[in-house]
C-alpha cells in the first residue's frame, strides 16, 4: 500500500514539477510571476485534445500542442511582457493575471463551458501485480516527465545556450554586454516554459479524463506554492518541491486524512517550510 501511494504521489508530483517549471523559467530570467502560465496549461490540454481527435495519433497531438502553446508563449512575451519590463514588478504581475482570466474566457467562448472527455488509447498496458497497479497513463506520464526534465537539465547544464540562460538570469544587462542576444534567450525561455505547461495540461487531461476551461485554476495556485518552495527561479528546486508536494499530498490524504481539502495541503507544506527556510528549499540567501 505504501508503495502504491508513493507511486501515486510521484506521478502527481512530477506533473506539478512540470506545471511549475514554466513559471520557474520565466521568473528565473524576467523576475515576473507568470500566472498566465497556468493558462498555457489549459490551452495545451485543449490543443492536445483537438489534435488527438483530428489525427488519432497521440504523439502528433502531444508534440503539436506543445509546439503551438510554446509559440503562443513567445507571442505573449513579445507583445505583453517585453514592453512592461521596465515598469515596477506589480505591473507585469497584474497583466499576467489579466491574461490568465482572458485565456480562460476565450476558451469558454471558443470551446464551450462543458467538461470534455480526453480518452486516450495508449499502445501499451499498465502493470498489474497483486498489491500494486500502475496503469498505462501513469507510466506514460512518468516517462514523458522524466524525458522533459532530463532534456531541460541537459540544456541548462551542458550547452552554450544553457550557460547563456544562466548568465541572463543572473545579470541580464551584463549578459547582453558579453554578447548574448538576450531577446532570443527570453523568447526560447517562453517557448520552453509554455511548452512544458502544455505538456502538463495534456497529461492531466488524460489522467482525469477531463478537459475544461477553468482547469488551470488549481495549478495557478499550486504552481505558486511550488516555485516559492523551490527557491524562486531555481529549476532543480522546482522539481524537488513538486515531488515533495505531490508525495506529501497523497500520503496525507491517503493515510492521515485531513480536515482541509486535499489541495490545501500544498499550502500547509509551504507555510511550514518557509517558517524554517524563508529562502525556499534550494534557494540562496541574498
Amino acid at each position: 500500500m505504501i508503495l502504491q501511494q508513493l507511486i501515486n504521489g510521484i506521478v502527481i508530483g512530477s506533473v506539478y514539477a512540470l506545471i511549475a517549471m514554466g513559471a520557474t523559467l520565466v521568473y528565473g530570467i524576467l523576475k515576473v510571476l507568470d500566472i498566465a502560465n497556468a493558462g498555457a496549461y489549459a490551452i495545451g490540454a485543449y490543443a492536445g485534445l483537438f489534435l488527438y481527435q483530428a489525427t488519432g495519433s497521440l504523439p502528433v497531438a502531444f508534440l503539436g500542442a506543445v509546439l503551438f502553446t510554446g509559440l503562443f508563449g513567445v507571442l505573449v512575451q513579445r507583445v505583453l511582457y517585453v514592453p512592461l519590463l521596465d515598469k515596477p514588478p506589480l505591473v507585469p504581475l497584474i497583466c499576467s493575471i489579466g491574461l490568465f482570466i482572458f485565456i480562460q474566457d476565450l476558451i469558454r467562448l471558443l470551446a464551450g463551458p462543458h467538461i470534455r472527455a480526453f480518452e486516450a488509447q495508449l499502445p501499451f498496458r499498465g502493470i498489474e501485480l497483486p498489491y500494486l497497479s500502475v496503469n498505462a497513463i501513469w507510466i506514460a506520464i512518468m516517462a514523458t516527465t522524466a524525458v522533459l526534465l532530463v532534456f531541460l537539465w541537459y540544456m541548462l547544464n551542458r550547452t552554450k545556450l544553457g550557460l547563456a540562460w544562466k548568465s541572463t538570469a543572473q545579470d541580464l544587462e551584463i549578459a547582453k554586454a558579453m554578447g548574448v542576444n538576450v531577446d532570443r534567450v527570453v523568447a526560447f525561455n517562453f517557448l520552453l516554459g509554455y511548452g512544458f505547461a502544455a505538456a502538463a495540461g495534456i497529461m492531466i487531461g488524460m489522467l482525469y479524463n477531463s478537459v475544461f476551461p477553468t482547469m488551470g485554476d488549481m495549478p495557478a495556485y499550486k504552481m505558486l506554492a511550488i516555485i516559492v518552495l523551490g527557491g524562486l527561479g531555481n529549476p532543480l528546486g522546482t522539481v524537488v518541491a513538486g515531488l515533495l508536494i505531490g508525495v506529501v499530498e497523497t500520503l496525507v490524504a491517503g493515510y492521515v486524512g485531513f480536515f482541509l481539502p486535499r489541495d490545501a495541503i500544498a499550502f500547509v507544506v509551504l507555510i511550514v517550510i518557509l517558517l524554517v527556510r524563508p529562502q525556499g528549499l534550494l534557494g540562496q540567501r541574498t
Binding site: E173, K176, M178, G179, N181, V182
Partner: peptide
Amino acid sequence: RPAWVRTE
C-alpha cells in the same frame, strides 16, 4: 544597435 553586437 543592440548591446550584444559589441563583443563581436
